[in-house]
């Protein structure tokens, strides 16, 4: 591979931080979810990079990445359903206003 391992790790870290910022700073619940998707992808990049550079003969990295993708799909499906249900109930998806859990 012609690309140093550190470049990959730096890119994944940058993507993770972007996602973290999105998840922390967004008012909108869907915006928060988009940030989480970015973070999951950063993790996945790391899994694949470690497979490629450190254990290219083992399959664990790829298998784990597959499971992460599957779980991300389940998370998005359930999360968005919650957002749609909350929107229908409260007519808002602003996270600060969704406070039905603490009464």
């Amino acid at each position: 591979m012609g690309i140093p391992l550190y470049w990959w790790l730096a890119v994944a870290a940058a993507l993770f931080c972007l996602g973290l910022y999105g998840a922390l700073s967004r008012k909108n619940a869907i915006g928060v979810l988009l940030g989480i998707e970015l973070m999951l992808n950063a993790v996945n990049i790391n899994l694949v990079v470690f497979w490629r550079y450190i254990t290219p003969q083992a399959l664990t990295g790829q298998i784990f990445a597959m499971f992460v993708i599957g779980i991300a799909a389940a998370e998005a499906a359930a999360g968005l359903a919650i957002i749609i249900a909350a929107y229908r109930q409260r007519d808002t998806v602003v996270v600060d206003e969704l406070d039905m859990m603490h009464w």
Partner: peptide, 30 residues
């Protein structure tokens, strides 16, 4: 680029083809 061809296609199928469509639908629904 990392020679993980199967994962590349799976990422395209699940994330771009499925999850992104789900998110766009949810945005349009609210």
């Amino acid at each position: 680029l990392l020679d993980a061809g199967f994962l590349a296609v799976v990422q395209l199928l699940i994330y771009v083809g499925a999850i992104a469509v789900l998110i766009l639908f949810a945005i349009m629904l609210s």
